[in-house]
Nucleic acid binder design. Structure first.
Lengths: 340, 340
DNA sequence: TGACTTTATGCAATCGTTTGCAATATAGAC
DNA sequence: GTCTATATTGCAAACGATTGCATAAAGTCA
């Protein structure tokens, strides 16, 4: 087949009317401007020719693209899959399509990606990449590009965001451990340059002090298993009376598990462990991970809808949506056992 | 700031030349057509105005979009994250941007998505969704849209594809089990409407008969843990002398694990288990899963590059790339133990 | 100096839609 | 039968870039 894609002009010629009439007849909102019989003739002709409007052309005229850029720091990190899923779902419902970019963590590389997206004339941007004080955000604001942050927020209040309540998440984790009887609790923090790293650390300390406890904290410089193992190693080697660890993230928690294993420590018998995110498959690891569940898919959906709304209304209101996390108790936490 | 995006015309006015000269000066390939001093004046002016070419406009003229549609059956399935990562990486290197659509498994819903992509005028399509005989493929061919299949292929030879060698994968799995001493081996097949389901089943049977063995096969109707558990349940309840199971996919294998657990059977002591894909985190489940590793990221990269090549050259050659899988032996397989 | 090539630039059409304005026709009012 | 309101439609200019063709200026050579 491979017909060369029908245009409005061809329909116009075939029906003997002017292109502008065709355009109006095919636009539901302008449909009433053209006579009924003409409109139906146009409609059937369009159908016959297999007409698909060329949005490139329309959008050039209208100054839009119906495209939204989605910047992820690391597509391979399992938490981003559900976020992206939610974004894709909600965007397509709003008539937008997501362009995804796996932009890494470096600000400069991210800006390169955004420049490409800018030349594609994306209508807006969803950032899952930001650090606490991110160059990229300013870059987008300068260019008047509607932006929304998802999963991570920034310290300054410049753009809307959809995140989880990190403080509450850590409180759930700590309260659970304390309730089980733990007192010597450590925290493997995420990179403190990210909001999740910093806010969860703060949340940990706040929750601990609420119980009159002081916890040890060790920062992992990236959200990876290896970094988690290394941080946990320092923690365990530095103080051997730690009975529980709360990690800032499941990937870090898996690293903690590795560190425990190499030291011959059992989880939860010797050390209890709580993760954060409840990313896919956390129920099948050994032991099944107790963790703080975040509705990532919903997070993506909300962010996409807010951005679409923002673009359509042109509003500049800076709204922050904070989702309530939930503790999921599985096998990696137990009461502290007297050591042999 | 929010300057309203500089255009070629503004640069032309500012430098006192014609827009066409600006266009030429800014295009590396046409750069030699304009005098050096003029070109540098234009370049600095463009820089000063923060000019970003409007690809919408250029592409309208050029009849392209630099956009590639990527259709996934299920973004939440962890195998697709690395594939998508590879695609995104390679596409951006080729100057394309991926539009991802989480299109589900229904052919009709997928076609709806493709129609949207078509109206965005995507230059090509990467399909990770196809079934053995897929309507969608014909649909795209009819419209002359360059297409490439990734991960799953179709029975007919209509379009290029990048897949893993499913036959070899199953041979690796079966040979490993036989070598350990297993004789009563069963297979939990994936949906036979997908190439991976059908070819891996065939591969299983071929590998078994090569050893003079006949295996039991049970099909799971979808690639999910639940379906895997159900299929394994039938297998285990039907014949209690099975000592090993090869699953068509890791998700199914996890389901098998569930089924074993509910029946009080241990893995690998009572039943050995081999998965397929080596998706993320398969080394931390309990027991760590022996599985057939597929380089998904590389698969995505190759597919993206092939599609880009195909679009640029306009060639219609139908090439099939088959990647060699690799067996990863972990803790879920062992020699068969005499049952108590 | 005249004929001829080379180099640098401008002109204008084009890609496919959308939309303000103008033009025509038809109906309704008196 | 004239006049105004209303309903349809056409016209043409956008949107921002690209490019074949024409043109003008400069350089080459005898």
């Amino acid at each position: 087949m491979n017909r060369p894609a029908a245009t409005i002009k061809q329909i116009a010629d075939a029906t003997g009317v002017h292109p502008s009439t065709v355009s109006r007849a095919l636009d539901p909102k302008k449909r009433h401007l053209v006579a009924d019989d003409v409109a139906t003739r146009i409609a059937t002709q369009a159908e016959a020719l297999g007409y698909r409007p060329n949005r490139l052309a329309a959008n050039l005229r209208l100054g839009r693209s119906d495209l939204i850029g989605v910047l992820l720091p690391d597509i391979a990190n399992p938490v981003f899959a559900p976020i992206l899923g939610g974004i894709a779902e909600a965007l397509s419902a709003e008539g937008y399509a997501p362009i995804v970019a796996d932009a890494g963590n470096s600000s400069c590389q991210q800006i390169t990606f955004v420049e490409t997206l800018l030349s594609q004339r994306v209508d807006g941007l969803i950032l899952a990449t930001v650090s606490q004080d991110d160059e990229l955000v300013g870059f987008c604001i300068d260019r008047g590009l509607p932006v929304i942050l998802v999963n991570r927020s920034e310290a300054r209040d410049r753009v809307p965001s959809v995140v989880s309540d990190d403080d509450m998440g850590m409180r759930l984790a700590v309260d659970h451990l304390v309730e089980l009887g733990h007192r010597r609790i450590a925290h493997v923090a995420g990179p403190l340059s990210t909001s999740t790293g910093a806010l969860r650390r703060d949340g940990f300390e706040r929750a601990m002090s609420r119980h009159g406890l002081i916890g040890v904290v060790r920062e992992a410089t990236v959200y990876t298993r290896e970094a988690g193992a290394e941080a946990a190693g320092h923690l365990l080697d530095g103080a051997d009376d730690i009975t529980a660890i709360a990690a800032a993230n499941d990937l870090l928690a898996l690293g903690v598990l590795d560190a425990l294993k190499t030291r011959g420590l059992r989880c939860p018998e010797d050390v209890s462990l709580v993760g954060h995110n409840d990313m896919p498959l956390m129920d099948v690891v050994s032991p099944p991970l107790t963790t703080v569940r975040i509705e990532h898919r919903e997070m993506g959906r909300i962010a996409a809808r807010m951005l679409a709304e923002r673009i359509k209304s042109g509003s500049a209101e800076i709204r922050h949506v904070v989702l309530r996390p939930e503790l999921v108790v599985r096998g990696s936490t137990d009461r502290p056992q007297p050591r042999a």
